[in-house]
């Protein structure tokens, strides 16, 4: 194992890994756009379909990602906004916001009708609630209907906290989670309204 062999070995291995790493990065960038679309189409679209109706464009491709604040580590939080249009006119805006539920973060997708700025409907996306308890609540329309049709600046807190939403008995934690998610959503909407509608 002469020294020349060793250097030759290290150089070849490093160069090949380098080139492969670079090449793969190129492929990754080329496909990133399409992968993003596929991810949203297959994960978010089912939820979007529940809350948006009678639009004639494809909200998944008609989307914009805006920065909505920074998380604890200083990395900025990105929220994707989906636009539903009818005859070219914007009829609703939809995006996802999170609240902390019993099992962990609860994802809630909500749509805000335009131009009257009324909350269209909400639907749960990701949640790790215990299926038997929280899961039912997330799917139950009883909770969801309380949000539908309310103006943007309504107080979506629970009535025990002076809000207009009464919690589902036995799943208060999940109900709180949903209401905080919706409240956060409204915050984002009000704060970044210019970006969203701009």
């Amino acid at each position: 194992m002469t020294v020349r062999d060793i250097i030759n070995m290290i150089v070849v291995l490093t160069v090949v890994s380098l080139v492969c790493g670079g090449g793969l990065a190129m492929v990754k960038m080329a496909t990133a756009e399409q992968v993003e679309y596929q991810k949203i189409k297959n994960v978010k679209e089912p939820a979007l379909k529940k809350i948006l109706s009678d639009y004639d464009n494809d909200p998944v491709s008609d989307r914009k990602t805006i920065i909505t604040g920074k998380d604890s580590k200083g990395k900025d939080i990105k929220t994707t906004i989906f636009y539903a249009k009818k005859g070219g006119k914007l009829i609703a805006v939809a995006f996802e916001a999170y609240g902390s539920g019993y099992g962990g973060p609860i994802g809630v997708v909500m749509s805000i009708n335009q131009p009257d700025e009324v909350l269209g409907a909400i639907a749960a996306t990701t949640n790790s609630e215990t299926p038997s308890v929280g899961g039912i609540v997330m799917a139950s329309s009883e909770l969801r209907d309380q949000y539908a049709g309310k103006p943007v600046d309504a107080n979506f807190g629970l009535n025990s906290a002076g809000g207009i939403i009464n919690a589902i008995s036995g799943a208060t934690m999940s109900s709180i989670g949903v209401s905080t998610a919706v409240k956060n959503g409204m915050e984002i909407y009000k704060k970044y309204k210019s970006d969203i509608l701009g």
């Binding site: 890994s17 492969c20 793969l24």
Partner: peptide, 12 residues
């Protein structure tokens, strides 16, 4: 944030 290259890294 280069998780996509996981296969190459692990097998190496």
């Amino acid at each position: 944030s280069i998780e996509y290259i996981q296969t190459l890294a692990f097998i190496l």
